[in-house]
């Protein structure tokens, strides 16, 4: 067990997640509508929200099915979009207490937003906040999906409401506080750059993702962008 993981508890996590849960509920509604329109029926989208629990991956799978793609293609694109959860899981692993089932539960409830809310800075994560935030997001995502498949005809096309822009905006709001750092300059390969390491990692990550988008299958650019964090690799001291 690593020594400390912050003072915040379950309650702080539950409070912090509310604005994001509202957005995720709206996103879940649009997923339910689109999945139903893609011929997934009413039950399968809800089961997928309970089990896969990853927005962009579920959208990708639905759109592949709608375009008449094979089941293997749809499942593979969902899994590739979720490949970032491998490194993300490694970052939270040292802070998880309890047995295998407890760690599995925390792992399942780890999504982009709960991972960010649970970050305590300098590479530490708070498992109680992760659990609370993840549960809030999970419930919102499932209820949203259920609402979407049940009332899709009334809601209509959700992209009209600009919901697809809500997510980059949400991630930007989560990113900005993470750009602060005690270090004023970054040393990469002997070069000294006058900006803090998180800002350099962010710029590099965005650049990698955009550069790869036209050439790599969806999901791969995001995972590749994660490699930008290697600028923080410290030499053996």
């Amino acid at each position: 067990m690593a020594e400390t993981s912050g003072d915040r508890g379950f309650r702080e996590g539950a409070v912090a997640v509310v604005p994001m849960a509202v957005a995720v509920f709206g996103f879940g509604l649009s997923y339910g509508v689109l999945a139903r329109a893609a011929g997934m029926g009413g039950v399968a989208p809800v089961v997928m929200s309970v089990t896969t629990f990853a927005g962009s991956a579920q959208f990708a799978a639905a759109s592949v099915l709608q375009a008449g793609g094979a089941a293997a293609t749809a499942a593979l694109s969902a899994i590739m979009l979720n490949a970032r959860y491998l490194p993300i899981g490694v970052t939270v692993a040292p802070w998880l207490e309890g047995g295998v089932w407890s760690r599995l539960l925390h792992a399942h409830l780890t999504v982009d937003e709960s991972w960010v809310i649970a970050a305590e800075g300098t590479g530490r994560w708070n498992p109680r906040v992760l659990l609370a935030a993840g549960m809030g997001l999970w419930i919102a995502w499932i209820l949203g999906t259920l609402g979407g498949v049940l009332f899709g005809n009334v809601i209509g096309d959700p992209t009209r409401l600009g919901l697809d822009a809500a997510f980059p905006a949400l991630f930007l709001a989560l990113l900005v506080p993470q750009l602060r750092s005690r270090e004023r300059a970054t040393e990469v390969a002997g070069l000294r750059i006058g900006a803090p390491p998180p800002a350099i990692a962010a710029l590099l990550g965005a650049a990698i993702a955009l550069a790869l988008t036209p050439f790599a299958p969806a999901g791969v650019p995001i995972v590749a962008a994660g490699a930008a964090c290697l600028i923080g690799l410290r030499g053996r001291r």
Binding site: R84, P87, I88, V90, T91, D112, W115, V116, A119, G121, T122, G123, D164, A165, F167, P168, F171, L172, L174, L175, Q178, L179, P197, P198, A199, A201, A202, L203, L204, G205, A206, I208, A209, L210, T213, P221, I222, A225, G226, A227, A228, C229, L230, I231, G232, L233, R234, G235, R236
Partner: peptide, 24 residues
């Protein structure tokens, strides 16, 4: 030696999600 790396994964992945969600 990996502590600095995992702390930077957040900014790198979030910035990628912002860029993809905005332009792709």
């Amino acid at each position: 030696r990996f502590a600095g790396v995992v702390g930077l994964l957040g900014p790198a992945l979030l910035a990628a999600l912002v860029a993809i969600g905005t332009f792709a």
